[in-house]
Simulated assay, not measured.
Amino acid sequence: MARKYSRKASADVRRAMKKRKAGTLKSGRSGRTVKSKKQAIAIGLSEARAKGKKVPKKARKTTKKRKTSKKRKAKK
Rank of each mutant, 00 (worst) to 15 (best):
R60M: 03
K35N: 09
A50E: 12
T24Q: 06
R20P: 06
A48V: 00
K61V: 00
K57R: 15
K21I: 10
I43L: 08
K58M: 06
A40P: 05
S69N: 08
I43F: 02
M1W: 09
K21T: 15
R7S: 13
A74K: 14
A59L: 13
A16L: 03
R60S: 05
S30N: 14
A59S: 14
K75P: 04
M1I: 10
S27V: 11
K19Y: 02
G28T: 03
K8E: 10
A48N: 02
K4G: 07
A42D: 11
V55F: 01
T24R: 11
K4Q: 14
K67D: 08
R20W: 04
G31T: 11
P56G: 02
K65D: 07
S46D: 15
L45I: 05
K61S: 02
K57P: 14
K70V: 13
A22E: 12
R20I: 04
T62D: 06
Y5S: 05
K58A: 11
Y5W: 15
A9V: 00
S69E: 10
T62I: 06
L25N: 03
R15I: 07
A16C: 09
A2C: 08
I43M: 11
A59D: 12
R72K: 13
K35D: 07
I41W: 07
K76L: 12
S6W: 02
S30W: 10
K51T: 02
K64R: 13
R66C: 08
K65M: 12
S36E: 04
K71C: 05
K4W: 08
T24H: 02
R14E: 09
K61M: 06
K8I: 00
T63C: 05
K58T: 14
R14A: 15
I43C: 00
T33M: 05
A48P: 01
K64D: 07
T62R: 12
K70P: 03
G23F: 10
K35S: 13
P56T: 05
A22C: 07
K38T: 14
Q39Y: 05
G44F: 02
K51R: 12
G28N: 04
S69D: 05
M1R: 11
A16H: 02
R15V: 04
T24K: 07
T33S: 13
G23R: 07
S30K: 13
K53D: 06
S30I: 10
M17A: 11
A40N: 01
M17L: 13
G23W: 09
S30H: 10
R29I: 06
R20E: 01
S69I: 09
K19S: 08
